[in-house]
Design a protein around this nucleic acid. Structure first.
Lengths: 235, 235
DNA sequence: AATAACTGCTGGACTAGTCCAAAAACCAAC
DNA sequence: GTTGGTTTTTGGACTAGTCCAGCAGTTATT
């Protein structure tokens, strides 16, 4: 889309300034597109364009038909630390919440089968969850578990940390993981859950987990709102 | 921007299909926005919106006033492997090129000083380079070196690997590094170099390098075209 | 043969609207 | 007090154009 250059340079600079100057605080609402277009005497399309650009930058985010809001600071995600979601968020003085969206049991589709190194028709469980930080839905997670490794797991509370559940109920420790971080667009079902537009940018993380015997136990697809996270690695 | 929903769903699906079906090949040009708008009987704005969305997905990219093109496969970037850029690209059967954009010598601004753990006014060299994969500019790099650690470095060929230069000329080995990966928008000078629009999404990588004595020797800012790369970690 | 000027094509930026659907606020009826 | 419509507000999607600037290829000039 027309990305802000001349007319919208103004409004971008003003908003950026207001945000960095703490006049607009995290989670606070920004005036509506129509208001801004009147304030700056430009079309709503140009306003949208400027807001889009600030959104890419990670300064603001939109909620469908609710308005635009200032983004809170990014969470630091260290893939090398064996720390589960709630712990990580708590360590950064933020509050976390997990909501179970649904569970499906099915035969592993080919992409998943390849990732999990399954050679033939194998049943898997797919657990879909939505994670919140400070009350805002920022992460959609899809876990694919090899069913026979986790008998009876569906009767457990799946809103808790799966890593902990693996350890306590099955004696599995996540020994190592393979990660892939891919900036891409949100697929339909993810966009819907995160309340963003289909095709909007997200950070996709594909993760394959190995237990202490070096067996693959599950894989995970995470979709983060890009303004909510940064990857941090110290080695 | 209006992200593709109804009218533009069509055009998105068609292009996606043509690309995955290899009817449109990497680096190949897509029909112009005006042509597409006639072909699908929709406005150019709607076409733009659909193309924008495919761009976010990483399937296509634009070149200013030249047209839209199909993205080649992403490069896998493993931050834990001590492998320099040209080596990494070669290992993936692609061709790399580095172009020196310029060198500045200055006092470290506060952000850099903090990163490099400098306590007082310290001169640094800033080396700006542009990296190409298969002839396409995909990576803008800014290296900030503490000047007194690298006497006379400016007389060297700076288009080669700095890691290698550090080792051969100064006996420095990059022992470990801290990384931060941040999906954000391209600043003005980066956008210009990469030939993308200001404010377009990029993957920003901040990296601080330590030598074998555990001293910070330099820091680096990388800005990747998001469709050109994925981060891959195995541990 | 080299260079400068022209020209068409491309995306960039923008104006001025319209219609729609979801969310939220409001208000009246129960 | 709660429920259930109605109205208002908000962003989503779209139409139908305009003008501009950079790129590339051609043509005319030197």
């Amino acid at each position: 889309m027309g990305v802000a250059k001349d007319v919208s340079k103004d409004i971008k600079a003003v908003l950026r300034d207001q945000i960095s100057g703490k006049l607009l605080l995290p989670l606070q609402k920004i005036p509506s597109e129509r208001e801004l277009s009147e304030l700056f005497s430009i079309t709503r399309i140009s306003v949208k364009s400027a807001l889009d650009s600030l959104e890419v930058e990670g300064l603001i985010y939109r909620e469908d038909r609710r308005g635009w809001f200032v983004s809170p600071p990014r969470i630091k995600y260290n893939p090398l630390s064996r720390c589960h979601f709630h712990q990580m968020i708590r360590d950064q003085q933020r509050t976390a919440k997990t909501q179970l969206l649904g569970v499906k049991s099915m035969m592993a589709p080919s992409i998943i089968a390849t990732l999990l190194a399954l050679s033939e028709l194998t049943p898997i469980h797919v657990i879909e969850r939505l994670r919140y930080i400070d009350g805002r839905a920022v992460l959609f997670v899809e876990n694919c578990l090899i069913s026979h490794c986790f008998p009876d797991i569906l009767s457990e509370d799946l809103a808790q940390s799966l890593t902990i559940l693996y350890a306590t109920k099955y004696g599995f420790k996540t020994n190592r993981s393979n990660f892939e971080f891919i900036p891409t667009a949100a697929p339909e079902h993810v966009a819907q859950a995160l309340n963003i537009r289909t095709g909007q940018q997200v950070l996709k993380i594909c993760r394959v987990n190995y237990n202490q015997h070096n067996d693959i136990i599950d894989c995970e697809f995470e979709y983060w709102r890009t303004d909510a996270v940064m990857i941090s690695i110290n080695n």
